[in-house]
Design a binder for these strands. Structure first.
Lengths: 156, 156
DNA sequence: CGCTTGCTTCGAGTGCGCTCGAAGGTCCTA
DNA sequence: TAGGACCTTCGAGCGCACTCGAAGCAAGCG
């Protein structure tokens, strides 16, 4: 599994009404999750979560008195976004860039919007490609389903 | 460029009528392309084409009297299909499996069809995921375009 | 008290899909 | 006959996104 594959956790509800913020395990104020809780929630490994933080893909994560990570609901939201972007095939470096813009403050609003719009265009292009591929697949499946012998010079 | 990215050569005509077989540089019978011609046509490198053959992703490729590869229009068709499948994120190993089935003969028809149908389902799932992502992106772009300050607890 | 569980950091390893370099053979054109 | 483009094989290297192991500290439980 490199990229392209939904996390098992994310495939719960196939609700199309997506824009609503996802509900979280705990209410704001009591949201202090250990790394293993977050790992279970996101489907990522603890190793990967630490790695995300190391490379700057996570906003600064709180620590407990003894130095352990304590994630918040906001962190979960962020990880949800990252998960979506990951599914688009967006390179980690680009996501890190976005995270940096977020950390840099409000004056990067325009740049962030541009980055998102570029990504949006990429996603639309990918969808179009996949539809083309679908057409090819349907064409071949038809051949295999109907006429058993393939036509003269098909790519098999 | 690892996976996910259309070849520059393939982005010529954005014709939606995809099912028609692509026209080839030379008519059948005089179709004997060198590796560099095929490289130019597909956008792959000669190295990659040889590698495809090595790992069993190409059907057997003809040779000239002196042992050089000579590709046919059928090979180009095959490479077009492989290119499409590659765009879906299908692992090379699965494509090799399909190629093996083709080589194995007509009694693998059913298995090939199943493989294609599984792939088809995967592609549909990917498209659905991308639409979800699109919704998230639109939501965020709206925030950045309209209200300049982000709402209370957005994932930024 | 010892045990388990789970956390920490650091750095090395893995799998995929290419990608490239080296060393040498062949074809074509002038 | 010389030059250069282009081909061959083999094997090593690379970039990405993780993935894992080791060594050690800390909390909680019977």
């Amino acid at each position: 599994m490199t990229v392209i594959e939904s996390t098992p956790a994310a495939t719960g509800t196939t609700d199309v009404c997506a824009a609503a913020p996802p509900s979280h395990p705990r209410p704001d104020g009591q949201d202090r999750y250990t790394i293993s809780e977050v790992a279970a929630w996101t489907g990522l490994t603890a190793h990967t979560l630490r790695w995300y933080e190391r490379i700057g893909l996570m906003p600064h994560v709180d620590r407990s008195a003894t130095g352990q990570r304590r994630f918040t609901n906001r962190d979960l939201d962020w990880l949800t976004l990252v998960g979506k972007l990951r599914l688009t095939g967006m390179p980690v470096a680009a996501m890190v860039r976005y995270a940096e813009l977020v950390r840099a403050g409000d004056h990067t609003f325009d740049e962030r919007r541009e980055l998102l719009e570029t990504t949006r265009r990429d996603v639309l292009a990918r969808i179009a490609e996949l539809h083309e591929t679908l057409a090819v697949l349907d064409y071949k499946i038809d051949i295999y389903t109907g006429a058993r012998p393939a036509p003269e010079r098909a790519a098999r």
